Simulated assay, not measured.
Amino acid sequence: MAPPMKLKVTNRSTKKPIKRLPSTIEVTDKTTVQDVKNSLAKQIGRMDPNRLGLFDTKNKILKDRLAIVKQNKELIAGKEILVKDLGQQISWQTVFIIEYAGPIFINLAFLFFRQYIYRDYVPLSISQQLCMGMVVLHFLKREYETLFVHKFSLTTMPVRNIFKNSAHYWILSGVNLAYWVYAPDSYATMPTPTTGYLDIAGVVLYLFGELSNLHTHLTLSKLRSRGGTERGIPKGYGFDLVTCPNYLFEIISWTGVLLVSRSLSVVLFIAFAWWQMHQWAIKKEKALRAEFPDTYNKKKYVLMPSLGAVIKSLVG
């Protein structure tokens, strides 16, 4: 085993430097990023190790907490590690639970308080009841996956980000969707000769999207050990068609909600969700190509495949 290496420790932020930060730290061939955080936090005194962000000399954050420090070429070449206080932390699992709880309670609240919200109160139509059930079940499924399926490579995130992360769900699929969909004069209250068919088609699309989305999440979960940070190449149902089929099935599921609700508020939510998921899917494709250049089957479509690609996949 090679002798320990001494790295210079520097405050990354000159405006808000970390007090009592040691000037150097020793790392061995087995020292991980988390080991460095734990050691620095102990020397600083009474500090959550997860608050410490570690960066190399090019200001690239060391995300993988289980990565071996001496295997980072940039870090070892510069013989220096930059440290920043990321602020008060909260677990990713807790963030997800809070994010998804919002739409559940907001949509259900309209069931009990509609008479106080709208001037002209009428009972919910069948389509409105279906839509509420679909939305609530969608986020209950999300809560289940957060607790029992997802495996997070990052343990925590800054507390301040919870407001930004929750706004998308609490506002767009919460207040925005509920207010317009459950209104006495929404399209979901106006029966037409095609209403029944739209409701049936919407429920079928919704169930297909939800079950397929759950399947892809289970596939992704199997690629990582509990508490681990390792990555793998996802294969199988949907993954041979696009980079992130879980996002594709999410859009399909919400298209089902759209058919039942017939509301522009759902269109708005889908549009924002598609834009955000498309950005994530592009990053995921780039990351897979970079990490597995020789074994990863590069995808042309990251989120939404062409009709030709779908037919080709079905034919075999």
Rank of each mutant, 00 (worst) to 15 (best):
T10C: 14
R12T: 07
T14V: 15
K16L: 14
S23N: 09
T28S: 07
Q34C: 11
V36E: 02
I44F: 01
I44C: 00
P49V: 06
N50D: 15
L54I: 06
L54S: 02
L54G: 01
K58L: 15
K60Y: 15
I61G: 10
I61Q: 09
I61D: 07
I68P: 05
L75P: 03
A77F: 10
L86P: 05
G87V: 01
W92G: 03
Q93G: 09
G102A: 15
G102N: 08
P103W: 01
I104R: 00
I106L: 06
L111A: 06
F112C: 03
F112R: 04
R114W: 00
Y118S: 03
Y121G: 01
S125L: 07
L140R: 07
E143P: 06
F148P: 03
S153A: 11
S173N: 07
V175I: 14
N176Y: 13
V181K: 00
Y182G: 03
A183L: 03
Y187A: 15
G202R: 00
G202L: 05
Y206V: 07
F208I: 15
L211G: 05
H217G: 04
H217V: 08
L218W: 14
T219G: 02
T219F: 06
L223G: 00
E230H: 04
G232Y: 01
K235N: 10
L248K: 04
F249R: 05
I252S: 00
W254E: 04
T255F: 13
G256L: 02
V257T: 04
L268G: 06
L268R: 08
E285C: 06
A287F: 13
R289A: 12
T295R: 09
N297Y: 13
K298A: 15
K298C: 13
L307S: 10
G308C: 13
V310T: 11
L314I: 14
